[in-house]
Measured scan of single mutants.
Amino acid sequence: PDFTLHWNGITIHFKGIDEEQFRHLRELLDRGVSLEELEELAKELIK
């Protein structure tokens, strides 16, 4: 499924991740993950 997340004025689209992965990403963003960390995470998910 696809998810869209609005965070700090940025709209991020996640394609092909499951709800569990999306929930994990939201928790990280709510905790204050940096954009660099988010990019690293995205690379991991894409593999």
Rank of each mutant, 00 (worst) to 15 (best):
R26Y: 08
E44V: 06
T11Q: 05
L29M: 07
E40L: 14
E19K: 07
L5H: 01
K43G: 09
V33T: 13
E36R: 13
E20P: 07
F3K: 02
I17F: 05
V33F: 12
L29Y: 06
H6G: 02
L5V: 06
R23H: 15
P1Q: 12
E19P: 05
L45E: 02
K43C: 02
T4L: 07
E39K: 12
E44K: 08
E37D: 10
L35Y: 09
D2H: 13
A42C: 10
F22K: 06
A42D: 02
Q21L: 11
I46S: 12
Q21T: 12
E20N: 12
L5Q: 00
H13P: 00
G9M: 00
G32R: 03
N8T: 01
F3R: 01
A42T: 06
T11M: 04
L45A: 08
G16Y: 08
E37H: 11
F22H: 03
N8S: 01
A42H: 10
E20K: 11
T11F: 03
A42R: 05
F3I: 03
P1V: 14
L35R: 05
G9R: 00
S34T: 12
L25E: 00
K15E: 15
I12D: 01
G9V: 01
W7V: 13
I46V: 12
D18G: 07
L35Q: 04
I46C: 06
L28T: 05
H24V: 13
L41R: 06
H13C: 08
L29E: 00
E39M: 15
K15L: 14
P1D: 10
F22D: 01
S34N: 05
G32S: 06
T4I: 10
L41S: 03
L5D: 00
G16E: 14
K47D: 10
T4S: 07
P1W: 09
W7R: 07
D30L: 12
L25V: 06
R23D: 11
A42F: 15
H6D: 09
G16H: 08
W7I: 14
L5P: 00
D30E: 15
L38T: 01
I12L: 09
S34K: 08
G9C: 03
L45Y: 08
L38R: 00
K47F: 03
E44C: 07
D18K: 05
F14G: 02
I12F: 03
L38Y: 02
R26L: 15
E20M: 09
D18P: 03
K47Y: 01
E44T: 08
E27S: 12
E39S: 10
E27M: 10
R23T: 12
S34I: 06
D2R: 05
G32Q: 05
L25G: 00
L38Q: 00
H24C: 12
T11Y: 03
L41D: 01
N8I: 02
I17C: 03
D2T: 15
N8M: 07
A42K: 05
E44H: 13
D30N: 11
E39T: 14
L35V: 12
I17R: 00
E36G: 10
G32C: 06
E40A: 14
E37N: 07
K15C: 06
I17P: 02
R23F: 10
E19L: 07
E40Y: 11
P1K: 15
E27F: 04
D18V: 04
V33Y: 12
R31M: 14
E44P: 00
